[in-house]
Amino acid sequence: MSRVLRAEWTKLRTVPSTAWLVAAVIGLTLALGVAAVASVDTAHCPTPTTCAEDTARLSLTGVWLGQAAVAVLAVLAVTNEHASGLIRSTLAASPSRVRVLAGRLTVVTVTVVAAAALGVAGSVLAAAAILPSNGFTPAHGYAQLSLADGPTLRAAAGSVLYLGLVAVIGVAVATIVRGTAAALTAALTVLYAIPLLVRFVSDPGWQEQLQRWSPSSAGLTIQATTGLERLPIQPWAGLGVLAGYAFVTLVLAAALFHSRDAG
């Protein structure tokens, strides 16, 4: 296994696009987070104390954009080998399909989790610096945003795990469909189109059910630190739903990868 891991790590790090995409994961997460935090001011509310803003969640808004870079990174790590025929060299060097998939999954997920940790921690720190100047002060009833605070830490760590699970799904979906365009379409549909479509469901009961079971909507509830009673699904349970999807697609990917001819 360590041989496959080393080989997969070398493959991932020796392609320039990996470094760019890691930078994009960090940069997009941070940039959108900062933009979201900077755009909100207690002065916009009738009184500073009635904003009812979930500042932790607000600071992690960038994860919504960072996940696109994560999906692209995970998908490309798999599909570039199918596009070039390199997959045949990979499987000739390491005939165990399960080991290759496990090795690839490990290096991609660890890379994404490391990048996500930087982007998420940076987002929280940046928000902690910006929020007080926008009126979110203890005097107005908003605690100073800090990773030492339990719910904030859960939201931040959960966001890192969320991006890690997006990477798992990206690798699994790409292993199943093999083509870059098809895999990217599938991954981005799951992440963006489904939550968007769910908003157009007019029946509130149905909408809540769908939000509870759609992968990204459920998974992102891990970021909520206030108003938990109004959520369609509780934070850890929501992340669990995403993990369930990741597990199922991964098992399917492993089964197909093991039984198919190298294409």
Partner: peptide, 25 residues
């Protein structure tokens, strides 16, 4: 085996292409 000489990642350096194979073995 040499099956298909075109089966390389276009932006990976040749030495790195051989390095991962060496590591896998």
């Amino acid at each position: 085996a040499l099956l298909d000489a075109a089966a390389v990642h276009p932006s990976r350096r040749a030495a790195d292409h051989l390095l991962w194979m060496a590591q896998a073995s």
